[in-house]
Design a protein around this nucleic acid. Structure first.
Lengths: 335, 335
DNA sequence: CGTGTGCATGGAACCGGTTCCCGACCCGTT
DNA sequence: AACGGGTCGGGAACCGGTTCCATGCACACG
């Protein structure tokens, strides 16, 4: 495999001159630079970032830690991050730490310590104090998306607000028996996305004077999860709610499928609102609060680049905009 | 940041001895080895793979090229690959080449040339001759999943066979007006997954003497794609088909949603069969031919490890097993 | 008792780049 | 004609590891 020495030899210059010509530092005459560039192009030379990083300390590589790649939100974010990093000439090393997976500690203890990247992006991850400590000890900038990492810049949406907005939409239509489908134990109303979305629902109900009749069916943030919860809600014949505020679009769609299957009309008998702007939302005419995970991925990369280039050192938190999109799964309740 | 020299100093030995103790090569007395290991553990030392790779030539890193991360099949595969690589102590560098994206050539020309990985895994990718050439010039083993790369080992399922099996199931139930929803232009019956699945349908129809009445509605391999195609099929009132052979489960589910929405009973009026074993299949009681992408990911990593360790040099192709799972979206046609 | 063998260790070269430092050269000033 | 500052390019050190080679030593053997 060809190295910089080969380029130098072909161009008839020394290694150092070749390096200067290629990286653009120091004085090189235009003529020599061209000769070096030509030589490099001719043999298809690309510098080994590995070797360069040894002396420069910049690896041109970023570690991304993510709990799922297979859920819509995370997949979108990852694609956005990938694109943005590529545009900045960075490679992306992926660490998939599935919740409950044994490999999680191995990643933090072993893999992250290999000094292989210039920075780290964590996505939707709640870190333990030990993990935080380990991350900090690497002495590389850390930015996070969708969850707060202490002392790190981050991009997120206001999860409480989106869920509140969705619920208020239902209340505004005249609903009072509204159930929230989603995760989150009631003790944990801040630490997780699940929890914050439950919080938003509770706040909206409270503010509307409906604090006494809140309902919460726990569910995984998946379509099958929403389906199971939906079955439960719909089969509750005595006092069936007239509306569902779902913690995510996948949950909402699952609930809709469950309702239709049982012969319950949406939105005539049951209104459903979600959160996300999932690619399925349009197909199901789902009313939802849209966020744009792909753009959030791009934004978090920008934040990391700022940190890498020493711009605005103090941690900032960027709140990404969201908006209510009313389609046809929500309507006034029947008298 | 601590280096091997620090470890050596603390343990009171030379750099070379420390290196031998840590990597396990050459002679080191048990006592010294322990002292070195203790010193390393004490300061949380992990060798920089970067620096080591410079001399050993092994980077402990694998490049993965994938067209989507956001589609079920690809997401599953990626998670399987990640797990398996981690278990072998390899990092994963992700290259997401979305079809039609301008960055594709940049990845092949620039990023892949950085000599950063020991091997490459391509997933569901049809390479142009130039790309193939570039890959080969890197002089690193390449293995592929779900598509043939000339001269490379690969893992795949028999796409023709699965689609044939699904279609034969419908034929076996007595259906004759069967439509295939999926991609693939009829000229391209081998090069792509779309094409091969169309081929399987055509073969099955042919063999059953139904070659004259094949029907094909093109569609993207997504749920919305299937929905759109489903609407088209169902609204064809005069001679509506009695069964759909979908190219994937996502397409199948989309078609089912479309049918139900239009009031067409599944399976009473319309049977639907898919291919994949998607996580949604069970929820929709979908009859399908299951494959296991996660396991395929693990298998392709094994193949790569074989190549990296010089075992069985000649390219092998592994056909992964599949099986028909009959649920309740298929039934005999009504008289 | 001299010598050969095998284990244990340290010194130094090396991987492929970047960068520091220094000398050569050119050109305009004094 | 001597001098100084700005350009240009080469030699060598360095990044953090691994590995080759030489050396020291203990022990067994003839």
């Amino acid at each position: 495999m060809s190295g910089i020495s080969d380029v130098a030899r072909i161009a008839g210059v020394s290694k150092s001159t070749a390096s200067r010509a290629l990286t653009g530092g120091g004085y090189v005459s235009e003529a020599t630079r061209q000769r070096v560039l030509d030589a490099a192009a001719r043999i298809g030379y690309v510098a080994s970032t590995n070797a360069a990083s040894l002396v420069t300390g910049r690896t041109k590589n970023v570690g991304v830690i993510i709990p799922f790649v297979n859920r819509w939100y995370f997949g979108e974010v990852l694609e956005g991050v990938e694109d943005a990093l590529l545009a900045c000439d960075y490679d992306l090393t992926l660490y998939n730490v599935r919740p409950g997976s044994a490999s999680r500690s191995r990643i933090f203890e072993h893999f992250l310590a290999r000094k292989r990247f210039d920075g780290i992006i964590t996505i939707g991850l709640d870190l333990s104090p030990a993990e935080l400590e380990r991350l900090r000890s690497l002495d590389r900038p850390v930015v996070s998306l969708g969850a707060q990492v202490e002392g790190a810049s981050s991009v997120a949406i206001d999860d409480v607000a989106v869920s509140r907005l969705a619920t208020e939409h239902l209340i505004g239509l005249g609903h009072t028996r509204i159930v929230h489908i989603g995760g989150g134990r009631s003790e944990d109303l801040h630490g997780t996305v699940h929890g914050r979305r439950l919080r938003g629902y509770l706040d909206a109900m409270e503010d509307a004077g409906l604090g006494a009749q809140t309902l919460h069916v726990p569910s995984e943030m998946t379509l099958p999860g929403g389906y199971a919860a939906g079955v439960q809600v719909v089969s509750n014949l005595r006092s069936r709610p007239t509306a569902i505020s779902a913690a995510s679009d996948e949950v909402a769609v699952g609930a809709i499928v469950a309702a239709r299957r049982t012969g319950v009309q949406v939105p005539a008998e049951l209104s459903v609102v979600g959160v996300d702007g999932h690619e399925y939302a349009e197909m199901f005419s789902l009313t939802t609060v849209e966020q744009s995970p792909r753009e959030q991925g791009v934004a978090v990369v920008e934040l990391l680049m700022d940190a890498l280039e020493g711009r605005h050192a103090s941690p900032t938190t960027l709140l990404h905009p969201t908006r209510l999109v009313v389609r046809s799964t929500t309507a006034r309740p029947r008298e």
